[in-house]
């Protein structure tokens, strides 16, 4: 009794009754109350005292309120599909379970009154089982949802990666071709030096006399005005032949560009022409030139 007195003096039962305790502390008090009748009795007294205090402050709800509240409450507990569907499922399960009981083996003679509690406990067991299963399903559903959204994310990542790979492979293929051109002895490198108009300009033409293939490789060219493009010309016995226009990428020196085939040439030159190129070179705009 002594140590209970200390426990009572701590005020924890009051805190429990007033709802001040954490769930863990509540459970502790409940366990103690279940184990010790003295504590159970003391707690019941505290609760009764507070209940008495509450009841002393009773106020009959104002006229009209009771009808409204009761009507709304009865409507809410009777109707709502969301809440009753679970109920119906539980009842359905209980109904399936219940008829089994009377048939099951020996039936005590006093079974009649016991039957209702038995089917109720079956119903409770079924409800608990169903609830657990619903909780389990909810958990699985949540997991499944998050797994499937993770899968979508991974698929996106994967397709992005595949696109990147395609781009990289294409670049690699371009580089391989360029490498083949550069390492091929059949290609003749023609250095194109800047003219007076652009002394620092510098480019190369790689020309294969046997296959007639022409590649251009820009080192440095002056920036172009809007609407203009560099055009490569081959001069065969003094006669200019169009070898195609340079793309922006090529003109800024990003890599080799495969130009039009040229059957025969002694000199290559580049001029600035209106976008799309010209039929005849504008000689005044010649930027670089070089002989084979």
């Amino acid at each position: 009794m002594e140590n209970f007195q200390d426990y009572f003096e701590s005020g924890i039962l009051e805190q429990y009754a007033l709802g001040e305790l954490s769930p863990a502390e509540q459970a502790e008090v409940e366990a103690k109350a279940a184990a010790h009748p003295e504590i159970r009795e003391e707690l019941a007294q505290v609760q009764a005292a507070l209940g008495f205090y509450a009841e002393a402050h009773a106020i009959t709800p104002p006229a009209g309120m009771s009808e409204r509240v009761l009507t709304n409450v009865l409507a809410q507990i009777a109707a709502p599909a969301a809440n009753t569907s679970l109920r119906n499922e539980v009842d359905a399960v209980a109904a399936q379970v219940a008829p089994v009981a009377p048939e099951a083996g020996v039936r005590p003679m006093y079974a009649a009154p016991a039957e209702a509690p038995a089917s109720r406990s079956w119903a409770i067991a079924a409800s608990v089982a169903l609830l657990l299963s619903l909780l389990g399903n909810a958990l699985l559903y949540t997991n499944w949802k998050s797994a499937s959204s993770e899968l979508v994310a991974l698929q996106n990542e994967n397709s992005r990666f595949a696109t990147t790979t395609t781009v990289v492979e294409k670049k690699l293929d371009d580089l391989r071709q360029e490498n083949q051109v550069l390492r091929n002895d059949e290609f003749h490198a023609v250095a194109l030096a800047g003219t007076k108009a652009a002394p620092s300009a510098h480019a190369r033409v790689l020309f294969n006399a046997a296959t007639h293939k022409v590649y251009v490789d820009v080192r440095s060219l002056p920036a172009l005005p809007a609407g203009k493009q560099y055009q490569l010309w081959a001069l065969d016995k003094g006669k200019p032949i169009d070898a195609g226009v340079l793309t922006v990428a090529t003109a800024t020196g990003e890599g080799l560009q495969h130009m039009k085939d040229i059957a025969s040439a002694q000199t290559f030159a580049m001029t600035v022409e209106p976008a799309g190129g010209s039929v005849n070179p504008t000689l005044t705009t010649m930027t670089v030139v070089g002989n084979i």
Partner: peptide
């Protein structure tokens, strides 16, 4: 039984 419950307890509950 909810109606019965209401009749018995509503004043105390409403008061609180």
């Amino acid at each position: 039984a909810m109606t019965l419950f209401y009749e018995r307890y509503s004043a105390a509950l409403y008061g609180v």
